[in-house]
């Protein structure tokens, strides 16, 4: 397994391990978004730890002191992954927009707004934050798709 594939595996697992519990918490308790700082620090620590372990365990990196270069094959795999991730992100954001258009009025009514006057609607902060958390979840999902696509690209090369 190449350094870049290991790196993609690590990023995929780290994002999953860190942001799955984060999103579970903030979607249940929208005001607890402060744990994003903890999540980001955890992500940085996990990825730093991985790179140190990978550098120590890789003979090539140990001998040369640098990571292998990104060549045209790596770039092709990354571009393809970025295309899939971009598509997923675009679909998620469009879906979010459609849901927001529908639910903003519903939430406004539940908050005491007048159904006949949309301009006076008020959206509760928890509902607004929930919407923001869902948008962030789509960004996390797109990142997972990106790294998963890179892993699949390398696995296809290895196993036909």
């Amino acid at each position: 397994m190449s350094f870049h594939e290991k790196s993609a595996w690590a990023s995929l697992l780290a994002i999953g391990v860190v942001f799955t519990p984060y999103l579970v918490v903030v979607l249940r308790q929208p005001l607890a978004f402060g744990i994003l700082i903890v999540a980001v620090i955890a992500l940085v620590l996990i990825l730093t730890g991985f790179h140190i372990v990978n550098a120590i365990s890789s003979k090539l990196i140990r001998e040369r002191g640098v990571t292998p270069p990104i060549d045209e094959l790596d770039r092709m795999i990354e571009l393809r992954a970025a295309k899939y991730a971009g598509f997923v992100l675009a679909c998620a954001v469009l879906t979010w927009c459609l849901f927001a258009l529908v639910f903003v009025s519903a939430w406004g009514v539940s908050a005491g707004g007048e159904p006949s006057n949309l301009a006076e609607f008020r959206v509760p902060v928890t509902q607004a934050l929930t919407a923001v958390h869902w948008l962030f979840a789509s960004f996390v999902l797109a990142n997972c798709v990106y790294y998963a696509s890179i892993v699949v690209g390398y696995r296809k090369l290895a196993h036909g």
Partner: peptide, 10 residues
Amino acid sequence: VGITRQTVIA
């Protein structure tokens, strides 16, 4: 040639 060993294999 400035590529990785994995690319040579591929």
